[in-house]
Amino acid sequence: MKRERGAALPAGDSSVLAERELIKKAKAGDNAAFRQLVDAYSKRIYNIGLKMLGNSEDAADMTQETLLKIYRNLGGFRGDSAFSTWVYRISVNTCRDALRAVYRRHERVFSGFGEEEAEDGFPEVADYSALPEIIYIEGEEMRYLQRLIDGLTPKYRLVVTLRELSGLSYQEIADAAGISVGTVKSRLNRARAAMRSQAEQDAEQFPQLLRLMGKEGGARA
């Protein structure tokens, strides 16, 4: 049921072919074809930016920058990987640069999405203390889930965003983020565990949240 919404973009053979046709035209200098080609992705890229950068201006800038990079380098795309993979890879890289700039603005150090660092040790998965005080508003479950994602540290937030919002497969996430499928699995596991335990903790204050975990609780508890 998840994959329906998640729509890994090339949904069927026919759309892959249509996309290939558009790529060919765009490579030949057809700008209308290029616009059509990236139109399918810009909203998705923007939303990755939104989750990773935290505000719409930076997200829109990052999306523009990504699309221009795609435009400049379309000639170098040879169809060895899926076009969507290539697009997500550029998006994630652009996002990384943008996030670095955001961190610099706040005089913090951003060390990337943990592409090279070893998986062991005690990674900080989430930090909910930095988020605004308002935790849950009645009926606003989605906003609460956004908050759970926002509290994750960047490298965990990235895999969760690519999974839950962009609907990518583990392999697609691995390609986009430049990490192995095993790393994707372990990060998603940790991130979800962190979000679950936070939700359970918050449920003590807001029992309605128990519904998110399929547990009876509701308003009467």
Binding site: M1, K2, R5, N31, R35, S42, K43, R44, Y46, N47, L50, S56, A60, T63, Q64, L67, L68, Y71, E141, M142, L145, Q146, E164, L165, R192, M195, R196, A199, R211, L212, M213, G214, K215
Partner: peptide, 29 residues
């Protein structure tokens, strides 16, 4: 319980692009 948690995330929807996005992009292109 996990299934419910997964299903809850399925309710997340992507936000729309800012309304001036396409115009700005045309310009930059």
């Amino acid at each position: 319980s996990r299934k419910a948690f997964h299903a809850a995330f399925a309710g997340l929807v992507e936000e729309e692009l800012p309304c001036d996005f396409n115009a700005v992009f045309s310009e930059r292109l």
